[in-house]
């Protein structure tokens, strides 16, 4: 399995509703996708947010991430939660007009059940984690 960014759509019950694993994703990017937008739009009444991985461990959003956060919220007409999952951290980003980027991110202490499955979609299990699962 190649290392590649992955994303998942999360509903108000903290349940994953759509695993976004499109062709063309790389270790540093997930391409634009009309399919993902339609998932967000069609599920907007129960939509809580979107999580995506940063396999290299960067725990802050890229400029592209920030454009996506803002544009999707503009399209939906409401704010969302945006999680960034690294190999060691889960960061929760949300709109904050006092932040120069418009979004502030902080460690999310909630033990979301979808975090480890999302990581497994993004990079191969390590030997130790593979042993734990077997």
């Amino acid at each position: 399995m190649e290392v590649a960014e992955a994303a998942v759509v999360i509903d108000h019950d903290d349940q994953p509703t759509y695993w976004h694993l499109p062709a063309g994703r790389t270790a540093a990017s997930i391409p634009d996708s009309r399919d993902l937008w339609m998932v967000l739009w069609n599920g907007r009444e129960r939509l809580a947010g979107v999580a995506h991985t940063h396999p290299a461990g960067v725990d802050q959003p890229s400029s592209i991430d920030l454009v996506t956060f803002r544009a999707c919220e503009d399209g939906l007409g409401r704010r969302l939660s945006w999680w960034i999952v690294t190999p060691t951290e889960v960061m929760l980003c949300s709109h904050d007009p006092t932040d120069p980027r418009g979004y502030r991110c902080h460690p999310d202490p909630v033990p979301h059940a979808w975090v480890e499955p999302l990581r497994r979609h993004s990079w191969p299990a390590t030997d130790s984690s593979a042993r734990e699962e077997s």
């Binding site: 960014e5 391409p31 634009d32 996708s33 993902l36 967000l40 399209g75 939906l76």
Partner: peptide, 18 residues
Amino acid sequence: PPTPFGAFLGDASRGINP
């Protein structure tokens, strides 16, 4: 709205310019 994530700079013609 666009939906890319990460360092992908996209295609300028797609209206995504960080």
